[in-house]
Design a protein around this nucleic acid. Sequence first.
DNA 1: AATGAATGAGGATTCATTCAT
DNA 2: AATGAATGAATCCTCATTCAT
Lengths: 188, 188, 188, 188
Amino acid sequence: MPRRHDTKQRLIQAAVHVARTRGYAHTTTRAVAEQAGVSEATIYRHFPDKFSLIHAAASDTAAQVSAVTQELPPRAGSSTVRANLLDVMGHMASVRADMAPLELAIATDPELSQARSQAIERGLPDGPPRHLAEYLAAEQSLGRVTATVDPVTTALVIMTQVFGSALGTGPSLEDSLDVLLTGLEPRT
Amino acid sequence: MPRRHDTKQRLIQAAVHVARTRGYAHTTTRAVAEQAGVSEATIYRHFPDKFSLIHAAASDTAAQVSAVTQELPPRAGSSTVRANLLDVMGHMASVRADMAPLELAIATDPELSQARSQAIERGLPDGPPRHLAEYLAAEQSLGRVTATVDPVTTALVIMTQVFGSALGTGPSLEDSLDVLLTGLEPRT
Amino acid sequence: MPRRHDTKQRLIQAAVHVARTRGYAHTTTRAVAEQAGVSEATIYRHFPDKFSLIHAAASDTAAQVSAVTQELPPRAGSSTVRANLLDVMGHMASVRADMAPLELAIATDPELSQARSQAIERGLPDGPPRHLAEYLAAEQSLGRVTATVDPVTTALVIMTQVFGSALGTGPSLEDSLDVLLTGLEPRT
Amino acid sequence: MPRRHDTKQRLIQAAVHVARTRGYAHTTTRAVAEQAGVSEATIYRHFPDKFSLIHAAASDTAAQVSAVTQELPPRAGSSTVRANLLDVMGHMASVRADMAPLELAIATDPELSQARSQAIERGLPDGPPRHLAEYLAAEQSLGRVTATVDPVTTALVIMTQVFGSALGTGPSLEDSLDVLLTGLEPRT
DNA sequence: AATGAATGAGGATTCATTCAT
DNA sequence: AATGAATGAATCCTCATTCAT
């Protein structure tokens, strides 16, 4: 009977790990408890129910992503736009791959989705897209990004590409970034 | 209660409907059978197991998407690139929203994912990206699309945006297309 | 895998049996299924949840009691009042002993109690007390029971004594009936 | 958070309160501890196990009932028999309503019942019926109660009516007492 | 082709209890 | 004296699947 005091964090990480490696459908209380090295009942000492654990795990990973993107806006003007974006996208993709099963399960399940919407309205940070948008706007001021594209929309486009890459269904980050930078319309 | 012999199709559509409206986690044999108006046991008259039904449902929807994109390549040169792409993307998104829960559940679950890979290797069509790439290449020949972007990569980028839109996490199709067309690099 | 068609009744009787012999707290789905010789899951083919089974069991036993008391009113005037009452009370007590744990658990649990109240308002028979009251009124007309006591109240008093006897906390039925017949006030 | 050392009493009262308001099935260690404002573990500082707490709670309430009935025998001859009995029955019923869930759970559960029998044989007071019987015998000597009824049996009959009233299944105390006083046999 | 009855395996959750602090 | 953390066993219930009809 080990008596740790970081059990809550271990449960969250166990949930992320199981979801990533085995999929959300296999993310049972049993599997998570086993992965964390505790009994199932212990989950309920730290979370009121399974979904609270899942939400905590998703939020935790979201916070990690946000920590990465936060550092982007100050880098406007330095290095190249391509390098800056590629760097952040790479970090995001690796973290997001962890989160994907949880996030998708939530996005896909109306019941869970509703709970998340409430959480978001209570002030959960939608940081990463905002950070990206801020960075892009700054680069626009510097003339290093086309002035006519909307920074907020562009941020969402990039996030979506990262998401696709994390899922394994999209092109590589580098390839997708090249397309985004060049644009489809011929330059006359 | 003798039913028609189109029960198989009704089961497939019931699976799609339940998955779309209630999420994959709630897509149980019970729910599907109820939605189809048959007994659970009837499912096993038409499919060897539940996953075969799920795969059939996903394939069915995938075929619909493919039917839409198939008509794209011949349209090269007509109307505008923007209009052609937006039209197809809109059709794809609406169909894909149906499929999203199933597709994501499959993509996310290693066990199912493996089964799908085998199915794909057996010849399931990955048509839509190919159709898009063919269309883009044709437009490049006509000088209506930048010659330097890779058509295959670009097709995947577009598919990813459609996917994000269907999920509700990305920008609107129109907005994302604008960004893609313009490109981020300033035109000197 | 036996394929009976009276499983529902067997489950009801199993529930009554377990409750009587082991108490309501031990009337688990497992215990009932075991007693009925089926699997736990089978319970849920016949009842939406455990409480529906418990209610069915209680109602079933209540119906048996009612069947006994129903025959009482026509017997007014025959035999003696003492013999008639004692006979019916004896039958009721034996059936009620079966029901006691269920009925008490229901009466005692606010949650279950509420469900029962609704059931009663929907028209469940409160037969036995009414049958007793009818019988007593008939005997009053015949002059074989004191005219001044209220038949309805008296019926409830008798039911309560039967209940106490079934529980094992009251006096024997014969003794309690003697007290009721004689009355405490001295006859001048 | 140092608490007073009357924690034991607070636990007993918490158990009674939870049992009365929510039923025995909901009288869990968690609920009792919460009601008492202590942790679950504290219960085991004061009682070897949950059943000891339950028995203590039942005994505690039983003692209160006994305290009420104890004062009855000396009142023989004063006021009226009806007033004396009604007064005591009223007090008993109010206390017993608290106890009912616990007492019934014990009476109904063979396992607990056995433990109680042992406790009773170890000298737990069965006072109230005896007090009532003594009072009735005294009134018989005074000619205020029919001489032919057995005081002990009558005491049990009265206790049973009180019990029914406390449970809410019997008639009002006043009504039942009227029936008992008058008796069913016509007075010639 | 269809189904009602049945089930083994597993789901989330709660229980009374223990123990180190 | 008190408690927060932990748990094994048991709770009710659901799932995908089988089989006789």
